[in-house]
């Protein structure tokens, strides 16, 4: 068949069945995933009246179009978005970094009792959030402040006069506490991800580096770390999404209104008596933007990491 006479139909005829099947599945997947998003986007530009009158996925009519919902959502969520970033970015980076270091120590360096530590860490993945809520709140609101109050007033008593108190109600401190909590909670899963990745790294290469005179930390810095960039993308995306989307820990640990994170603000936005779908949808889209951005930025590395490329 000559190339000039090609039309879409003949192309399809030439295709193998498996390829047609693949495209069909992909098309289905595309529609399946994007249809709700399209509905949400359409809804957020509609007035309440227009929403009632039209089907959810149809675009708004000229007089049914409004930016009011989006503006409301944006104004409500904006402080929350910033707080979420302040909290989620360090938490994500710390989890990934500690996970990577822990995994390195548990694979490439051999020492007694490794297996026990691995089991212990993996068990950490399966602790449900709900199970730690009470001890977590007690730790941040009672145990730690008591300890610090005692410590500071004893050691630096000459300066504080024994009156120093841990600023429990400081909004940024609450964000910091939430961040640390998420970082700690993320270490087990990050360790597991990095560990399986490091197990595929050639032992001979590490031995070569040892013979080259590199110390354990130097091997990590010069060889393991540069090679784990794809895995960092995976853990960063995964961990960021987890931390950013969490509402439970935020509800327990952050109670200063000025420090509320995006998920808390979103809950407030949609929690009104009258259900206004357009602001709800606008809020959902705005709140989802950061995670979308993270996926776009690290997408390529993510694919490499998932495919196990080194």
């Amino acid at each position: 068949m000559s190339t000039e006479s090609r039309n879409p139909l003949s192309k399809i005829q030439e295709m193998e069945n498996s390829r047609i099947g693949l495209y069909a599945v992909l098309l289905f997947g595309l529609v399946f995933y994007l249809f709700p998003v399209e509905t949400a986007v359409m809804t957020m530009f509609k007035t309440q009246q227009s929403f009632i009158e039209t089907v959810p996925f149809a675009p708004p009519s000229a007089d049914g179009f409004t930016l009011e919902a989006l503006t409301t959502a944006w104004n409500t969520l904006r402080p929350g978005l910033i707080n979420s970033m302040i909290m989620a970015i360090p938490a994500t980076i710390l989890s990934a970094l500690f996970g990577s270091l822990t995994a390195y120590g548990l694979t490439t360096i051999s020492w007694r009792g490794q297996v026990g530590v691995v089991v212990f860490i993996i068990a950490g993945i399966f602790i449900p959030y709900q199970a730690v809520l009470v001890p977590l709140a007690q730790f941040w609101y009672q145990i730690l402040p008591d300890l610090l109050n005692g410590f500071v007033n004893t050691v630096f008593g000459f300066a504080t006069g024994g009156n120093w108190t841990y600023p429990i109600r400081n909004g940024y401190l609450q964000l910091f506490q939430l961040s640390v909590t998420h970082a700690a909670y993320g270490i087990p899963i990050c360790t597991l991800l990095f560990r399986s990745y490091y197990q595929s790294i050639s032992d001979e290469m590490i031995e070569a580096a040892r013979l080259d005179g590199a110390t354990a930390f130097s091997i990590y810095k010069n060889i393991i770390l540069p090679l784990s960039l794809p895995m960092f993308a995976v853990t960063l995306i995964y961990q960021f999404t987890q931390v950013y989307n969490d509402l439970l820990f935020a509800l327990v640990l952050v109670n200063e209104p000025s420090s509320q994170v995006a998920t808390q603000r979103l809950a407030a936005l949609t929690g009104g008596v009258v259900q206004s779908f357009n602001t709800t949808m606008a809020g959902a889209i705005v709140a989802a933007l950061p995670t979308l951005l993270v996926y776009i930025v690290f997408g390529e590395q993510f694919a490499k990491g998932v495919a196990g490329e080194t």
Binding site: E204, M205, A208, T310
Partner: peptide
């Protein structure tokens, strides 16, 4: 100094 069968070069 050692030369390995897999060469063990640093790929990056």
């Amino acid at each position: 100094a050692m030369v390995f069968q897999s060469y063990a070069l640093y790929p990056h």
